[in-house]
Nucleic acid binder design. Structure first.
Lengths: 215, 215
DNA sequence: GCCATCGTGACAGTGACTGCCAACACGGCG
DNA sequence: CGCCGTGTTGGCAGTCACTGTCACGATGGC
């Protein structure tokens, strides 16, 4: 069992007790990710070697790959809190109501947390990096796709609708969110501040307008 | 000048005379791509080495990388004819008319050519492969993104609209096309035939319906 | 204090990809 | 017909991401 970090000792409820080992693990993970992000920013992705990252953290290269499958993914560390919150909201989806508006509520909530919370500043660094590092952007796209797949299949279960139909809707929304994040990042590049939620709403509205203009 | 195949000797008009060297080049390129696709299908992407592909073609591994930047991209050889046709249609875009319907005309045309033409069978093989080979799918996503970027920036020039707005529309359509191609490929996996154009229309309609259901 | 489990480091290996250089084929030019 | 600039190729050496394996040491439950 190499990569997937399944909490092998999860006795009862929720995130009650992370356990000592688990906490250490999270800390190392975070440390690696931070160092990686720093180095990527200062030297560029392809002028940073895994050995370098591992060395700075004080860990062997072999261990690096026990935490992250690829060099790029080290920068793409997710936020457990946020993901759990999303999971909860997804489970609360009502099958009898239209899907897209319910998804939009979730996305707005995610973007709100990002824009306001501590995590936002970190994510902004990552998204800015993506503008100049194609392989990092690609890794991000892959991650997006995995999330879209997981989300779509779960929603298909919940709503009872065909997998493909749900997937289309989720992909659509995902593209809009990604677009908002891109605008957010490029704006920051120019030292402009751009409200993330507003960017999302604008994109969402633009899509509707464009489709309406058709006929 | 390593990778980009710029026709160094392009005297006058269009695709008049490919020139002997150019023809050789195209042939080798095609040959490599065919062998790569065959091997990927029979052994799987990660059980196929570049040395193997190059060996079968009768070319050195070094030369392989002069034709394709990565192993995966060898399978993703584009169709020059089709790309040129798209280019022409893009140039004919009318700025004063709504963008999306015009794009839809182009996509329908592309999908029609794919579904009917010789290239379709090859593309189908590639898309089927993508269902099982994540890294190939990823390479495809990257290619899509490059095409989207190029198309969006050209359309922004032509229409005079902001780059970001155009990009959003193009990304949207691209996602729908990709969705249709995926359904096409997965249907073929089950030995069912699925009309590519019909799948596209269905997806397009579904998107409108979903957005309309919102409010 | 004992033992099963887990995390880690070292080592060796594979394979993608690159820079460099020398040999060579081509195709235009005198 | 022979010469030469340009483009194409192969070989070589090197870097680096990533993996399997094993032995050591720490952890935490009993």
């Amino acid at each position: 069992m190499p990569e997937t970090a399944v909490p092998s000792v999860a006795p009862s409820a929720g995130p009650a007790e992370p356990g000592l080992r688990e906490r250490r693990r999270r800390q190392t993970e975070r440390e690696i990710s931070d160092v990686a992000l720093d180095l990527f920013e200062s030297r560029g992705l392809d002028h940073t070697t895994v050995d370098e990252i591992a060395g700075r953290v004080g860990v062997s290269p072999r261990t690096f790959f026990r935490y992250f499958a690829t060099k790029e993914s080290a920068a793409l560390l997710g936020n457990a809190d946020l993901e759990e919150r999303v999971g909860t909201m997804v489970e609360a989806t009502r099958p009898e109501q239209p899907l897209l508006p319910q998804l939009e509520v979730i996305w707005r909530e995610v973007l709100r947390v990002i824009a306001e919370g501590e995590e936002g500043t970190r994510l902004l660094r990552v998204r800015r990096l993506m503008q100049h590092e194609p392989s990092l952007r690609l890794a991000g796209l892959q991650l997006d796709e995995e999330r879209v797949s997981a989300l779509a299949s779960r929603l298909a279960q919940i709503t009872g609708r065909p997998d493909d139909d749900v997937r289309l809707v989720v992909e659509l929304g995902s593209a809009v969110v990604r677009h908002a994040l891109d605008r957010w990042a490029t704006a920051a590049e120019r030292d402009e501040h751009l409200d993330l939620l507003a960017a999302y709403e604008a994109a969402s509205t633009a899509v509707r307008a464009e489709l309406a203009a058709g006929r």
